[in-house]
């Protein structure tokens, strides 16, 4: 069996005296789509922020594909193939889809020290592909993200992660503030991760959503992992009872 795509060993995190993560041990295999559930303050967000490079653990080890990983910024995490989609989504509404897709990773025609002229043609071409790959149909990659619905925006965010060949996609409550129809669309995008060989961590308040699109469910409470089982081997009732 290949190395886990991500592994946490004895991870601890304190915030100003609050023990936010207590000895978290977690291992996710390539291609798995894992649902992470738990109440507010259970430690989900803290764990995610460590995985996406926003925070650093105070103790314990983080391994990406079997190798110890040092992540000091979201950029480091992205370089290692971890892409995070936040609930308040990570798109700039006043910019076009193409510009958002390549934000911070713009292809350049000419450049020195990482600064230069945008390769607009390539941005246009590749963003059209990227959007089509997640089965999202938009008229043009020049449309402003502000014109898209919430579900479509999450679709573009997922397309962006796919395009940059992310190995691990972290979705932090991507269905918050979305209508039922839009939510279903986003759940569809998440189901689409597995066929493309992308590993996913899907954070949600809604256990029903997790059961609709994940292989495995992990529940957290008071900074600890209290439940970890394949979706087939458990039921919604069992998890609800425990939380």
């Amino acid at each position: 069996m290949s190395a886990p795509i991500v592994e946490c060993r004895g991870v601890h995190k304190w915030y100003a005296g609050v023990h936010a993560l207590k000895d978290v041990n977690l291992s996710i295999a390539p291609g798995e789509v894992v649902g992470l559930v738990g109440d507010n303050g259970a430690g989900k967000s803290t764990l995610i922020k460590i995985l996406s490079g926003v925070h650093r653990q105070d103790a314990g080890e983080l391994l990406i594909e079997g190798k110890p990983a040092e992540m000091r910024s979201p950029k480091d995490a992205m370089r290692l193939g971890i892409e995070t989609i936040y609930q308040s989504n990570s798109m700039v509404p006043t910019m076009s889809i193409a510009r958002n897709l390549f934000l911070g990773r713009e292809p350049l025609r000419i450049g020195i020290f990482g600064v230069g002229l945008l390769d607009k043609e390539r941005m246009r071409r590749e963003s059209v592909h990227a959007i089509a790959d997640v089965d999202l149909h938009l008229r043009s990659s020049e449309a402003l993200v502000g014109e898209l619905s919430g579900g479509q925006r999450q679709g573009v965010a997922i397309a962006r992660a796919m395009h940059f060949k992310s190995k691990l996609l972290v979705l932090d409550e991507p269905t918050n503030h979305l209508s039922v129809k839009e939510t279903n669309k986003v759940l569809g995008f998440i189901r689409g991760l597995k066929p493309q060989g992308v590993t996913g961590i899907f954070i949600s308040h809604n256990i029903h959503h997790v059961f609709q699109c994940c292989d495995r469910v992990i529940a957290m409470a008071r900074g600890e992992i209290v439940f970890d089982r394949a979706v087939d081997a458990t039921s919604i009732d069992e998890i609800q009872e425990m939380l």
């Binding site: 910024s73 936040y86 990570s90 798109m91 700039v92 509404p93 006043t94 911070g104």
Partner: peptide, 13 residues
């Protein structure tokens, strides 16, 4: 992007 949505820009590095 910095002026359009600071958090998103920062999150994208």
């Amino acid at each position: 992007s910095t002026g359009g949505f600071l958090e998103a820009a920062a999150a994208m590095g």
